[in-house]
């Protein structure tokens, strides 16, 4: 793995995409400021909107070159190894896009607030950006990055209609995930509670003790992330034109 090659790949990405990223950022700013003017950012589900953009739109777009024969040839012939290409994609999906969307969301919220303030001087104090942008999503950070990893893999794996196949596969994975979560809750209740009790111990935060089954979703997420990126690398390695 050569850092110089990763830098070159990033540079090539920025040359090709900076305008698109900026335009999309502008759309986010406009949409969020409009939402923020009409309803509070938290109620507008800003975090969820951001999460969907980051989990589906960007990773799907990231490997769009692999979805067409001539662009796939161009991409595969760029002098960087398969691992370097995957790592560059991981950087973009997990860091660059996340920070970029957060930045544009913050600008959108502040802009909306500023405009609102002009017309309605009595509105609440400056919005808590930290709360709205980072913590208004219903997903945990680990779940969020698991979904990114999953979409990332799907974007490399599916050549035709990646978006729809991704949704279908996502739906199936969701069912598996929910099943695992349900099993975790069931196991947890069974291991901690006295037989026959309907009161579940883990809800009482003061007496909450992590058991093996509490870690299961976290372990599942971590395994899923590693698995998705490892599979993405293998898929990239065996990609032909």
């Amino acid at each position: 793995m050569n850092i110089k090659n990763i830098t070159k790949l990033l540079k090539a990405y920025f040359y090709e995409n900076w305008q698109n990223d900026l335009i999309f950022g502008f759309v986010i700013v406009m949409a969020i400021s409009l939402f923020s003017m009409l309803i509070s950012p938290f109620d507008a589900g800003v975090g969820n909107i951001a999460a969907v953009i980051l989990m589906i739109y960007y990773p799907c777009r990231l490997f769009s070159k692999l979805h067409n024969s001539s662009s796939r040839m161009h991409y595969l012939m760029i002098p960087a190894s398969n691992a370097e290409k995957v790592v560059t994609g991981m950087f973009l999906a997990n860091i660059y896009y996340v920070l970029g969307v957060m930045l544009f969301l913050s600008i959108g919220i502040l802009l909306g607030y500023g405009i609102n303030k002009i017309f309605n001087p009595d509105i609440e104090a400056t919005p808590n950006l930290f709360k709205y942008v980072f913590f208004s999503s219903s997903l945990s950070i680990l779940e969020f990055y698991t979904w990114i990893a999953f979409t990332f893999f799907a974007a490399i794996y599916f050549r035709k209609s990646p978006f729809w196949k991704l949704l279908l596969t996502g739906f199936l994975i969701l069912i598996v995930f929910i099943t695992v979560m349900a099993a975790t809750v069931w196991l947890n209740a069974k291991s901690v509670l006295p037989a026959g009790s309907l009161y579940r111990n883990y809800i009482k935060t003061e007496s909450y003790v992590l058991t093996g089954s509490d870690w299961l979703p976290y372990v599942f997420c971590c395994i899923a992330i590693v698995y998705c990126y490892a599979m993405s690398f293998l898929r990239m390695k065996e990609t032909e034109v």
């Binding site: 595969l76 012939m77 002098p79 960087a80 190894s81 398969n82």
Partner: peptide, 10 residues
């Protein structure tokens, strides 16, 4: 498709 190999081919 190593990076060194791809540097040598167009």
């Amino acid at each position: 498709r190593s990076s060194q190999q791809l540097c040598d081919v167009y």
